[in-house]
Design a protein around this nucleic acid. Structure first.
Lengths: 341, 341
DNA sequence: CTGAAAGCGCTTACAG
DNA sequence: CTGAAAGCGCTTACAG
């Protein structure tokens, strides 16, 4: 039944024999759980080196009942999610965990299923779901049932540990900023939400328009199957649709990438930003301030959120945090101004 | 010794009892290795559902001797590495593996050590190292000794399975493009290589200048500890250094992000691109074509490379591939032109 | 400080 | 098609 020795890497057993000590002794120098005499410790260390021994995480995990792996599920790899992944990864590593990232496209459920199954077949401690808003909640919740899950979303869900990055509020404030400048209304190129539902960013935009009692233009939808780094491509063509409304003076875009594309499209159409049309994004990517004109946008707490989601997962008692750091807020730059005339 | 039942999730054993079948039967419906009668299969499935059973990957891994996890080590999360991670992840998933990503900063070896140790303590099949050029080879190779490793680098290493994305050639061709336009020489803002060594992109630039017999300006170094998405910030300040040389007419930047920052800095200094100074990047990020002016750059085979590195890891016999697809090559846009006069 | 033994949850020949 | 048993590599009480 046992595979021939050479097929498998050396085990603790080989090390023990090589070092002339018992199995538990090897284990002890590995874990440091119990003191081991210097002499034996050195023998063991030398034997490990000679054999090229590497501990088998699966075996260790089996015994200890849990494995230091945390799964991260993200709908795409945009600036924001990359930031959250990075900060969650850093926090996880500091806590002794390793992070496994699965990009699960809410618009490609067949592949998504495979991805999730592969992820969930791993011995993981729990799962962090980024931009939870974009998933069809029931499906995902069912799949994850029984596992510790922490989510980052715009609103939070009472049934799950969650961290709130308030996209909806950000979108509302951004829209209010444009209205306050004197625009009669604000158009919107929307970031895709879950199947058939608007993203909270679209809801926040709508909130502001309705509260102000101004007309609500039909939002322009971009192709939801675009890859995360291709949103900029969606911006340019959407300009054609925007320009059908001659009253256009201000656009709020579902993220900075889309805004970059829209600005480019407007320029190509002979319009200037912000003189003819004001444009705002959301995310505050590093390039936003370097664009010409520098982009008005909204800084979200991505760095904070990743780490907070990890805390929520590991320490449920202190859960359900809400972004409150000073890095959250409107960033007014050069791409928005008063309407002409 | 056994932990109280309620502390641990249900096992195959619980399912077997609940379903009134034997242990191997449950295992068989799980793996599909052997046919199971419809009646029992249904009983088992129902029991699993009732109990919320989820297979324990660690146990499975232990038995099978290998675990479907592949580690990816990357120095940062820039556009190129994000692309490679994505394509490797996709290929891995299709092959039934899950991918674990560790961002390991070549300039922060203390943290790097922890990261690597956590990663290597996991039961992984092998490791893919992205942008291998940026690491201090000996250290890393020693750590990874004995594990299957595949690398993506500019040159390849005979001791390791590797995939070549020829940065050096790309940098050379880009520099040649600028020289061919009539520039007397080309300045360089360099992308950080491994400690104390130039990155292949810098070498390629130097190759071209030396081959052309033109003077080689001192390359401008950016802060190597910058995060991957912050390179754009390095571009602007480097303009001050560039402008010390009054003969400046062309700059090749170590990546597109740096080029964006440099273009911004030049504009801020009252110079126009490309009339006063030509600027080229390397990577061809999605934004390169949307920038004003659209950036001349070099498209590298990131998508291909990630998948190829996975193949090299899993099928060493067909290893050591070299980028050859049609997506590899110079992309001339608006940011480069002939020198004035 | 050290060793013999049991057990983590699962899969895989083996024998029907 | 099905069940009893061994074993994957490691850790952890237990007994000295």
């Amino acid at each position: 039944m046992r595979a021939p020795r050479d097929d498998r890497p050396p085990t603790i057993h080989d090390v023990a024999r090589e070092a002339g000590v018992s199995l538990p002794t090897v284990s002890r120098v590995l874990t440091g759980s119990t003191p081991v005499s210097k002499k034996r410790r050195d023998q063991v260390l030398a034997a490990m080196k000679r054999l090229g021994y590497r501990p088998n995480g699966a075996a260790r995990a089996l015994v200890q009942g849990r494995q230091p792996i945390i799964g991260i599920v993200t709908p795409d790899v945009t600036y924001g999610s990359a930031q959250m992944v990075r900060s969650a990864e850093r926090a996880a590593r500091n806590a002794g965990y390793v992070v496994t990232v699965s990009v699960i496209d809410p618009y490609d459920l067949t592949r998504a299923d495979t991805s999730l199954d592969v992820l969930l077949a791993q011995p993981i401690v729990g799962v962090i779901v980024l931009d939870f808003d974009r998933y069809d909640l029931k499906d995902l919740a069912e799949k994850l049932a029984g596992l510790p899950v922490s989510t980052i979303s715009s609103g939070g869900d009472d049934h799950l540990r969650h961290v709130v990055v308030d996209d909806r509020r950000a979108a509302r404030e951004l829209t209010e900023h444009l209205l306050a400048l004197g625009h009669k209304t604000v158009h919107h190129v929307s970031f895709p939400g879950p199947h058939g539902h608007p993203h909270p960013r679209e809801l926040g935009w709508r909130d502001a328009l309705i509260a102000a009692g101004v007309p609500v233009p039909t939002p322009i939808q971009i192709d939801p199957t675009l890859e995360g780094d291709q949103y900029v491509r969606a911006g340019r063509p959407s300009v054609n649709e925007l320009l059908r409304d001659p009253s256009l003076t201000a656009v709020f875009c579902g993220n900075d990438q889309i805004a970059f594309g829209v600005m480019r499209g407007l320029t190509d159409a002979g319009l200037s930003v912000p003189q003819d049309v004001s444009v705002a994004g959301i995310d505050d990517e590093p390039l936003a301030e370097f664009w010409g004109p520098a982009l008005t946008t909204y800084r979200l707490d991505f760095d904070w959120a990743g780490a907070a989601a990890l805390r929520a997962l590991l320490q449920p008692e202190e859960t359900n945090e809400r972004a409150a750091s000073s890095t959250f807020g409107l960033v007014v730059r050069d791409s928005t101004t008063k309407p002409k005339g």
